[in-house]
Each structure stands twice: as C-alpha cells, then as structure tokens.
Amino acid sequence: MRKTEMQDDDLTDLFVGLRHREPVPTAALMERVLANAVQAQQPVADLRVRAVRYPGLWSRIAGQFGGVTAVAGLCSAALIGLVIGYSDPTTVDYLTNGLSDDMPESMDMFPTADFLSTEG
C-alpha cells in the first residue's frame, strides 16, 4: 500500500480538532454580506401592491366549457340548429340542393309544418 500525504487517521484527527472550534466570521465578511443584503432589498421597496382581480361569473362559466372560443362555437352551433329546425322545409331544400342525387323530387318530409307557427 502506497503512503499518501494524509491518511484517513490524520483526516479524522483534523475533523475532530475542527469540530471543537466555533466558526467565527470576520468583520470584513459580515460587512460584505450586509452590504449585499441592503442592495438586494432596495428594488423590493419600490414595488407597489396591486389588488388581485378574480374572474367574474361569466368567465368562470366559460372556463368550465373550455374557454370563450368554445362557448362561441357552442352558441353558434345551437343558433344554426334552431334556424334549421324552425325554417320552412322548402328553405331546407334550397340549402341542401345537390347533396343527394338519389332522393325523389316528390318526397314530402313534412306534410304540415303549421304546428310551429300556430298560437294557442
């Protein structure tokens, strides 16, 4: 076994000797630490406290559905569904003209659509 400058026993003795001594920082070190602390605190003193705004009711509801764009798409799909559902069947024929060639011309999908616009 080759001998190095410091063996394990020497290292253990060194640590035992240092363990009994209290570490005392020098005055220059304490002065630098305090100067750095004062310098770091100056930008913090310039900060202003802002009031936190919480999202409103409609924002929270829109957030549950995936955001404002998802709610806009949902509303536009619902509106188009109402328009198609309430419109006259002849208007639907104009919109769907040419979508299917195998439908007969004389097929009557809604024989009477008066129930949608009657009162009472």
Rank of each mutant, 00 (worst) to 15 (best):
A72G: 12
L116V: 06
T118I: 14
A72F: 13
M107L: 15
R21E: 09
M103L: 15
W58R: 12
V71E: 01
A35H: 09
G56I: 02
L29F: 11
A35R: 12
Q42T: 13
D93P: 03
A77Y: 02
L14C: 03
T4Y: 13
L116K: 15
I84Y: 08
L116P: 02
G56F: 01
P111I: 06
T96I: 02
V24I: 03
G56C: 01
R32V: 05
V71L: 03
V16D: 15
L29G: 05
Y54W: 13
G98V: 01
R2A: 11
Y54K: 14
T112I: 13
T12F: 14
G120Y: 02
G120D: 02
D13S: 09
A78V: 06
E119M: 13
V16W: 12
R32A: 10
D114F: 02
G66I: 04
R21V: 10
A27D: 07
D88F: 08
G67C: 00
V49A: 11
V33E: 04
L57W: 15
W58T: 14
A77L: 04
T90Y: 14
D88V: 12
V24P: 00
D93K: 08
G98S: 01
Q7G: 14
V38H: 03
M30V: 02
V71P: 00
Y94G: 09
G120P: 01
L79Q: 12
V38Q: 04
E105G: 08
N97V: 07
V83Q: 04
R50G: 11
V38F: 00
M109T: 13
D13R: 11
A113L: 09
L29W: 09
L47R: 11
L47T: 08
S59V: 07
V38P: 00
G67F: 00
E31P: 03
R32K: 12
A113G: 15
M103R: 15
F15M: 09
T96M: 03
D10L: 02
V24F: 00
M107N: 09
R2K: 11
A78Y: 04
S59L: 05
L57I: 15
V16C: 12
F15H: 05
M107A: 12
R21P: 01
D46G: 10
K3Y: 06
T118C: 11
A35D: 12
A62G: 00
M6C: 09
V16K: 14
